[in-house]
């Protein structure tokens, strides 16, 4: 086997094993073609493939090399900037919801899926009486979270959106942080923020060859 590891100027952070095979030109006809076929048939190149799969099987069975995440029971961590079903956040001190009913999110929504109604309460403050997001239309663009002056509407991590009713996730109370979970409420890192271990996870793409 003619193998050679290609060295490049900007060496990657972890060692990578991309290998270029020097196969030469494939002869099309005649004696050279026959010679190549005979050589490949006898040299046992096919057995290399069999050996690799067998090795993987042994690894999987006895050395814990499975790559499966048992999905409904365990979940992969998702990036903080992931945009799934919206959350409505509360003020940390008072526990009141942050939304001031300004209507910017309704205005900017490019798929017209946010609908809200507001009114003045007894203290002449604006109060949100109705707030729904039609998730059949929402494209999760994130404009509403970006435009919100109070950081009230943000994107959460709930990506399992199968339900029995269309309205399941879309009411204001469903999206609002439960009052007893106020301590665990997290700020949305926001549009364009990077994952915490982004530097470590960076890999060079195999464009060297």
């Amino acid at each position: 086997m003619h193998e050679e590891i290609i060295h490049t100027d900007n060496t990657p952070k972890e060692k990578q094993n991309y290998v270029m095979l020097k196969l030469g030109r494939t002869p099309a006809y005649g004696w050279p073609a026959f010679k190549q076929v005979a050589k490949r048939a006898v040299s046992g190149e096919l057995l290399v493939g069999l050996w690799i799969t067998l090795k993987e099987m042994v690894k999987t069975l006895f050395m814990g090399g499975k790559h499966t995440t048992m999905y409904p029971f365990e979940k992969m961590p998702i990036a903080p900037r992931y945009r799934a079903i919206h959350n409505m956040l509360r003020l940390l001190e008072s526990g009141h919801y942050r939304c001031i009913g300004c209507g910017l999110c309704e205005k900017i929504c490019i798929s017209n899926c946010i609908a809200m109604e507001t009114r003045y309460d007894e203290n002449q403050r604006k109060e949100v009486s109705e707030y729904t997001i039609n998730f059949g239309r929402c494209i999760y663009c994130g404009y509403c979270a970006e435009v919100c002056p109070e950081l009230a509407i943000v994107h959460g991590g709930r990506y399992e959106t199968a339900s029995e009713q269309r309205a399941s996730f879309s009411l204001f109370d469903d999206m609002l942080t439960p009052i007893d979970m106020l301590k665990q409420q997290q700020e949305f890192a926001g549009f364009g923020s990077v994952t915490p271990n982004a530097d470590a996870a960076i890999k060079k793409t195999p464009l060297a060859y």
């Binding site: 993987e56 099987m57 999987t60 499975k66 790559h67 499966t68």
Partner: peptide, 13 residues
């Protein structure tokens, strides 16, 4: 099962 193990998966479980 065998195909799954050879591809580092679990197969029907």
């Amino acid at each position: 099962k065998v195909l799954a193990f050879m591809q580092r998966r679990l197969g029907p479980a």
